[in-house]
Design a protein around this nucleic acid. Structure first.
Length: 435
RNA sequence: GCGAUUGUGGCGAAGGGGUUAACGCAUCGGAUUGUGGCUCCGACAUUCGUGGGUUCAAGUCCCAUCAGUCGCCCCA
């Protein structure tokens, strides 16, 4: 048996409904905030991710799916969405839009080569948003508010918004110097992982889970204390805007993020819902003012976030939503010789009128067709055999009342829609009355 | 990359050396050939992830390997 690739999974028909619902909320809330969707390719030149996400990050060092194509070019399946959006904005010169800032969102699969566990897959989905072209603190607040409002729309309530600032390039440099000096003297008090981080990415020592609460970490210098005047004003205004919005958030001085491109505001929202397992971060994001210039684009400030869609679905599981009862409008029980009667035409005419109709393909006996009907949960059973065919009628049985009526074939559609409120045709056919 | 844990029918499971691999759900057939859901009867794993080994005898013990799950790292 050929099996699926590790870390991938099939979304089966009985699960697709919740995806559709979630995708609808993404579209609706994005519309409210006036974000437009952008769809970029799922793979790009490897260099794009190496230069944007950062050569020293774990994502690029050990988690990308790289492959050489037949023209000997190195390609990478996208591990995140921001880099592609940046590339596309530069390449298509979207920044020339007179109506800046650009407000874009994306939704789709991402790929990281990791060991799968609850809430983490090798092919997973992100919903992300970016505001490009403004360094206003209002933009930072807008992005955070968008994320929070989206969770509210999903009715996910057990959330915890944490924000921090890394400052501008100047502040970051000052801070890194101070941190390195401190760690040089104190690293021996920290865990093995921190000793490794100290070599590779010292910032990440700050949010170590093991040493969280230790003296060494508590006394370590924090980015927020090394802000330039400009950076400090920026962050203050972000928090003022969040306060005006009435958002409940905490400043987490240890919050740093794993991608190199962040400057100024960073944020995460996590949830303690038990169905999430160990991966409780629903969304992460921040400002990245230097990324456009570093990818040879114009000097555009920007801010964005990315949600892990699988984690959202796990969170929604905890809110134990009643599954919607699936149903069809009619199950057509055929007892005639289907090739000799107009049974197929009757079925198809109803479908053209916007009714969901299904029937048996196995030439089953009456009892078996009834059983199949029970599984499909129809509003009406339509029973049609040689007698009915001769008289040009259909025996129509309503499932909730069990009442059965003989209806002339010519009046069948009208009879059925009088008893059905929710049709499904999309309005594209000749017989449609605009349902 | 590291650690823990689990692989027995379509699904959920019992069996922890002894020859016939429980049981439940689902499915199919019949009682009941054009009026179903309940009930009753019957059918349904030449075989226990895969490959070796130990043994008179292996789902059962040993080794290897593959896969799933959860966690670490890291991240959404």
């Amino acid at each position: 048996m050929i099996r699926k690739i590790k870390g991938t999974y099939d979304i089966l028909p009985d699960e697709i409904g919740k995806w559709h619902e979630l995708e609808a909320v993404i579209r609706n809330v994005s519309k409210l905030f006036n974000f437009q969707e952008i769809r970029t390719p799922m793979f790009e030149a490897s260099e794009l991710f190496h230069r944007s996400v950062g050569e020293t990050t774990d994502i690029v060092k050990k988690e990308t799916y790289d492959f050489e194509d037949r023209g000997k070019r190195m390609n990478t399946l996208r591990p995140e969405g921001t880099a592609s959006v940046v590339r596309s904005v530069i390449e298509n010169k979207l920044y020339a839009d007179p109506n800046l800032p650009l407000k874009l969102y994306y939704y789709g699969p991402m790929f990281r080569y990791e060991r799968p566990q609850k809430g983490r897959q090798r092919q997973f989905h992100q919903f992300g948003a970016e505001i490009i072209g403004s360094d206003s603190p209002l933009v930072d607040a807008e992005v955070i508010n968008f994320a929070a409002t989206f969770l509210e729309a999903l009715k996910i309530k057990n959330i915890n918004i944490r924000i921090n600032t890394l400052g501008d390039a100047e502040s970051k440099e000052e801070y890194q110097k101070a941190l390195n000096e401190y760690l040089e003297k104190n690293i021996q008090h920290l865990c093995d992982d921190c000793n490794r981080r100290y070599q590779e990415n010292p910032l990440r020592v700050l949010d170590c889970k093991v040493d969280k609460g230790s003296e060494t970490l508590i006394n370590a210098p924090k980015p927020i204390n090394y802000l330039s005047d400009k950076a400090k004003i920026h962050f203050d205004q972000v928090t003022m805007a969040l306060d005006s919005l009435g958002l409940d958030y905490q400043i987490d001085e240890n919050l740093v993020r794993g991608l190199d491109y962040y400057t100024h505001t960073v944020f995460e929202i996590d949830s303690d819902l038990e169905t999430l397992g160990a991966q409780s971060t629903l969304v992460g994001g921040g400002r990245y003012n230097n990324l456009y210039a570093s990818l040879a684009g114009p000097d555009l400030p920007a801010m964005g976030f990315a949600f892990g869609v699988e984690r959202l679905l796990l969170a929604l599981e905890a809110i134990n939503q009643e599954p919607v009862n699936d149903y069809i409008h009619c199950y057509f029980i055929n007892l005639s010789d289907i090739f000799q009667t107009d049974a197929l035409k009757i079925i198809n005419d109803l479908r053209h009128g916007g009714l969901i109709v299904d029937y048996d393909f196995f030439n089953k006996n009456l009892k078996a067709q009834f059983k199949q009907a029970d599984r499909l949960n129809p509003v009406y059973l339509l029973i049609y055999g040689d007698e009915e065919a001769k008289k040009q009628v259909v025996n129509v049985k309503r499932q909730d009342t069990k009442e059965q009526v003989e209806v002339d074939v010519n009046n069948l559609y009208q009879y059925l829609i009088n008893g059905i409120s929710n049709r499904n045709c999309g309005g594209g056919c000749d017989s449609c009355d605009g349902c």
